[in-house]
């Protein structure tokens, strides 16, 4: 499957980036394709474009805060989890049913 994802956490210093790293690592292991955008202390990085969304099957939102430009993903099935889950048990995220 093809995923797009956004990670964000309260201070945007650690968990945002760790979650992104874990999602990428796990997707690879499970044989998925993923692009993860981080919304942390450095602002938006690795920004997900309309073309990325066009080609994606589902959207993963791993965040504890309201993210910017969420409307971009309104057309995609969504898996929404706390950012911590991406650290605790990233595999389970990919098993969830998008809605």
């Amino acid at each position: 499957m093809k995923f797009v994802a956004v990670t964000a956490c309260p201070t945007g210093i650690a968990h945002t980036y760790m979650a992104a790293e874990n999602l990428e690592k796990t997707a690879k292991v499970l044989g998925h394709v993923i692009k993860v955008e981080t919304q942390g202390a450095m602002g938006i990085e690795n920004e997900i474009t309309p073309a990325d969304i066009e080609g994606a099957d589902a959207f993963i939102l791993a965040s504890d805060i309201a993210i910017e430009q969420i409307e971009r993903f309104s057309g995609l099935p969504k898996i929404e989890v706390p950012v911590q889950l991406a650290l605790k048990d990233p595999k389970s995220i990919f098993k969830k049913k998008p809605c």
Partner: peptide
Amino acid sequence: AGNSHMRIFSRLAK
């Protein structure tokens, strides 16, 4: 935001 010093933290986190 975007200051090069800040990148150190995301690198370290990963």
